[in-house]
Simulated scan of single mutants.
Amino acid sequence: MNGILGRKVGMTSFYDETGKNIACTVIEAGPCVVTQVKTEDTDGYNAVQLGFDDKKEKSTSKPMMGHFSKANSTPKRHIVEFRDFNVEKELGDELTIDDVLIEGDIISVVGTSKGKGFQGVVKRHGFAGVGDATHGQHNRQRAPGSLGASSDPSKVIKGLKMAGQTGGDRVKIKNLKVLKVHTDKNLLVVKGAVPGHKGSYVIIEK
């Protein structure tokens, strides 16, 4: 599986050849450094580890400094491993966007969704609530309602949709089309939205 690491820049839109306005996301993809190459003989599987975004040396532990020095690289903030990488790269090589992607490719983007804190069932799960405030429905408009069984089994069933922490999860969006590739600026324009806030790290898989 090929891929590259990047950072979400933000969303924009442009018109295609038919005049239709398309919402798209701009991603700063790479350049990445190959910080480790794993093989079947030494590690039991084939993989390539990529590092993205420079990090201060004082914020890096000594073991990680030794890890990056083997690749003759500066410390990296975001490190991800790709199994069965098809692009031929050696330890310390730089991976750019044109090594992996071209316009028209279909990709998947992995990111961390925006955290929304503790939310109720209406916002978290899309419950409709009680639409009519009359007939004794006092302060019940956004309540979850019955939680299920009574004396048997005398407990709340696991997985029941209730209020709780929302967002901040690892999310993968599949089948996104690459609309533009700007190799000189390391920018990638993808059709649709990708998870995360502006400036958040994303993993681009092909």
Results as ranks from 00 to 15, higher is better:
residue 19 G to R: 10
residue 122 V to L: 12
residue 46 N to A: 11
residue 156 V to M: 11
residue 99 D to E: 09
residue 174 K to P: 00
residue 75 P to K: 06
residue 79 I to C: 12
residue 171 V to C: 02
residue 193 A to L: 07
residue 78 H to P: 00
residue 12 T to H: 05
residue 172 K to L: 08
residue 184 D to T: 12
residue 107 I to K: 04
residue 131 G to F: 01
residue 197 H to Y: 02
residue 165 Q to R: 15
residue 156 V to N: 08
residue 38 K to V: 00
residue 4 I to D: 06
residue 51 G to D: 08
residue 184 D to G: 04
residue 46 N to H: 04
residue 100 V to H: 02
residue 186 N to H: 13
residue 144 P to V: 14
residue 192 G to M: 01
residue 130 V to A: 10
residue 206 K to Q: 11
residue 172 K to W: 00
residue 104 G to N: 07
residue 196 G to D: 06
residue 129 G to K: 03
residue 184 D to E: 15
residue 52 F to K: 02
residue 204 I to K: 00
residue 1 M to Y: 10
residue 125 H to T: 04
residue 96 T to W: 01
residue 67 H to K: 09
residue 116 K to N: 11
residue 83 R to A: 14
residue 72 N to T: 02
residue 112 T to W: 01
residue 13 S to M: 10
residue 168 G to A: 07
residue 33 V to M: 05
residue 94 E to M: 04
residue 77 R to W: 04
residue 204 I to P: 02
residue 110 V to T: 15
residue 10 G to M: 09
residue 189 V to T: 12
residue 184 D to V: 08
residue 32 C to K: 02
residue 28 E to P: 02
residue 132 D to F: 04
residue 119 Q to V: 10
residue 5 L to M: 09
residue 83 R to Y: 06
residue 181 V to L: 04
residue 198 K to L: 05
residue 51 G to L: 10
residue 18 T to C: 04
residue 165 Q to W: 09
residue 118 F to M: 11
residue 64 M to H: 08
residue 3 G to Q: 11
residue 114 K to F: 03
residue 87 V to W: 01
residue 69 S to H: 12
residue 76 K to V: 02
residue 13 S to P: 03
residue 131 G to K: 15
residue 123 K to E: 15
residue 133 A to I: 03
residue 49 Q to T: 14
residue 42 T to S: 09
residue 98 D to S: 15
residue 162 M to I: 14
residue 12 T to M: 10
residue 13 S to E: 13
residue 75 P to N: 06
residue 55 K to Y: 03
residue 15 Y to V: 04
residue 8 K to T: 09
residue 58 K to E: 13
residue 97 I to K: 00
residue 164 G to V: 11
residue 12 T to N: 04
residue 18 T to M: 07
residue 47 A to F: 03
residue 39 T to H: 03
residue 69 S to I: 01
residue 100 V to T: 01
residue 174 K to N: 10
residue 27 I to K: 06
residue 180 K to M: 06
residue 55 K to H: 09
residue 174 K to S: 04
residue 31 P to E: 05
residue 50 L to T: 05
residue 30 G to P: 05
residue 127 F to M: 12
residue 119 Q to E: 13
